[in-house]
Design a protein around this nucleic acid. Structure first.
Length: 292
DNA sequence: AGCTCTTCCTGAAAGC
DNA sequence: TGCTTTCAGGAAGAGC
């Protein structure tokens, strides 16, 4: 599932191919994941791609104003969220089309930008500058840039569980289940702890762990779980480094205790019950549950 | 404010 | 063997 490192990997790949290209035409198959399919189909053709950027887990492809005349004067941004199974890649037109490919952007050099998404949990939209500003406002800080002070303020003052806070895109943009679990394991913090009850040292440790893990994962071109492939169709390598995520029943690499799985904030969470001691209240409930 | 549950969707894997 | 059920999860919305 694409999270910050996977999206960053895709963005870096697309950045080598897309800027400077002009969208010649658009072909859409299934459109239920697109906000306004007609707008995408009509506004994108004739416009030149300026850049490729990452906004949390969103991919932003700004398009130059102008294009083929008529109503396409205002700047627009093609925004793509990969959801669970989304893939965005530039392919030669003769390359066989993968099943579940729903959007084709024909480019002026003959290649195609293709969007493939088995489960269609992804999103696609064409946003004017105001819409983009509104989206950015909803998103929290980028975890790679956030200062220690802001991290403590955003997470250390909230009464929600730390796992929920890490996953909340309005708090931090880009963290998903894999990197939430991995950073909590590394910082030795139980996922059910309340943000406001974490010590300053724990918060600082968590920020450092999260940043190191995200940077390393980007170096490894992301984690390939449930068939994530980058813009060039290559798998990432960070899944080899997972210490807790999806390692239920395996020994904790630090202390040997069996990694456990439980649902917190509606998400399956993987943690070491010894390294990451549970807060009061959770301990009793966890005792009578034993899955997998 | 923040929790849980449900919905969207498909394919893999487990269960019978 | 082959069918049915369960699960996975990002995000949004409902209801508590």
């Amino acid at each position: 599932m694409p999270e910050l490192p996977e999206v960053e990997t895709v963005v870096r790949g697309l950045r080598k191919q897309l800027p400077g290209r002009t969208i010649v035409s658009v072909h859409l198959e299934k459109t239920d994941f697109i906000d306004d399919p007609r707008a995408v189909g009509e506004m994108a053709p004739g416009r030149r791609i300026v850049a490729v950027e990452r906004l949390g887990k969103f991919i932003r492809i700004p398009l130059e104003p102008g294009g083929s005349g008529n109503r396409s004067e205002a700047p627009a941004n093609l925004i793509v969220h990969l959801g669970m199974t989304g893939r965005l890649a530039v392919r030669p037109p003769q390359e066989p089309v993968l099943p579940h490919t729903h959007a084709f952007f024909h480019l002026d050099d003959g290649s195609e930008l293709r969007y493939t998404d088995i489960r269609r949990f992804g999103q696609m939209m064409l946003l004017p500058e105001e819409g983009l500003a509104a989206l950015c406002e909803k998103l929290g800080a980028d975890p790679l840039d956030i200062s220690a002070d802001e991290f403590c303020r955003r997470l250390g003052t909230r009464k929600a569980r730390i796992k929920a806070l890490l996953l909340d895109q309005g708090v931090l943009r880009g963290v998903g289940n894999i990197y939430a679990d991995e950073s909590l394991w590394r910082a030795r913090i139980h996922p059910a702890r309340i943000g406001a009850r974490l010590s300053k040292a724990e918060l600082l440790h968590l920020r450092t762990a999260l940043q190191r893990i995200l940077r390393k994962a980007i170096d490894q071109r992301g984690s390939s779980i449930s068939s994530f492939l980058d813009a060039e169709g290559k798998p990432g390598g960070y899944q080899k480094w997972h210490q807790a995520y999806q390692r239920t029943g395996h020994p904790c690499p630090r202390c040997g205790t069996t990694i456990r799985r439980a649902i917190f904030a509606g998400r399956s969470s993987h943690f070491c019950p010894r390294c990451q001691p549970a807060p009061r209240g959770v301990r009793r409930r966890a005792a009578r549950k034993r899955k997998r």
